[in-house]
């Protein structure tokens, strides 16, 4: 069974913001909401500058899901973390909990008026009927149901950003690292998917029973 993941290779990302643009265009994301962003560390320092494209990483044990007061998050069979905008009350808790700053809000108004949360869907839409008008308006296009991968990764010109089943991505990345000689550290993976060898985080693929 697939486990969808993102990889961003800091040796390749050239901070072109193509992924950000692709995402905004693919899903008609409104002004002020950015599901993906590129962050450059040590900007302008030769030899030390590295860029990372970041969006929702679709965590194994997702903090956003744990704190949502209306329980509107769910995980697909493939480990994609989605949410139901009809239930969301716009409290902002998911944004406080998320390590990556992924949840976005149309506004940050007085009296806590934020509007409904919006975030990266791994191009998998939401709970509405796949690629229906309702799904498209609320969550954007459902590329996964068309047999395609997230638009950001598929159009990345340097293939720094990779998306898809974790096993396939590992193979691609391993080959890359072997050709380079070294440098296998993957940004954000320990935070999102747990540390290898440590107590395993909840694996979405295994049918976990609801504990009570």
């Amino acid at each position: 069974m697939a486990r969808m993941k993102f990889i961003c290779d800091a040796e390749r990302c050239i901070e072109c913001n193509g992924c950000v643009t692709a995402c905004k265009n693919e899903h008609d994301v409104p002004w002020g909401v950015n599901r993906r962003r590129v962050v450059t560390l040590n900007d302008g320092i030769v030899g030390a500058e590295r860029s990372i494209s970041v969006a929702c990483m679709h965590c194994s044990d997702a903090p956003c899901q744990a704190v949502c007061p209306v329980n509107c998050f769910y995980k697909t069979e493939d480990g994609v973390v989605l949410h139901d905008k009809d239930l969301c009350i716009g409290c902002g808790y998911c944004f406080y909990a998320c390590p990556f700053g992924a949840p976005q809000f149309p506004q940050a108004g007085a009296f806590g008026l934020r509007g409904k949360m919006d975030k990266c869907t791994f191009c998998a839409g939401g709970p509405e009927k796949d690629n229906s008008k309702a799904e498209n308006e609320k969550y954007g296009r459902n590329r996964l149901a068309e047999g395609k991968l997230p638009a950001c990764a598929e159009m990345c010109s340097t293939k720094a950003l990779l998306a898809g089943d974790g096993d396939v991505l590992s193979d691609i990345y391993r080959e890359r690292v072997m050709r380079r000689g070294r440098g296998g550290d993957l940004w954000g993976h320990a935070t999102a998917y747990g540390v290898p060898g440590a107590k395993p985080a909840a694996q979405p693929a295994a049918p976990v029973q609801q504990k009570s």
Binding site: E77, N142, L144
Partner: peptide
Amino acid sequence: TVSAKPGVSAAKADDKP
């Protein structure tokens, strides 16, 4: 640890892709 059943939406059933 979040232990919601995978593949099942909290409120509405989601289509399989």
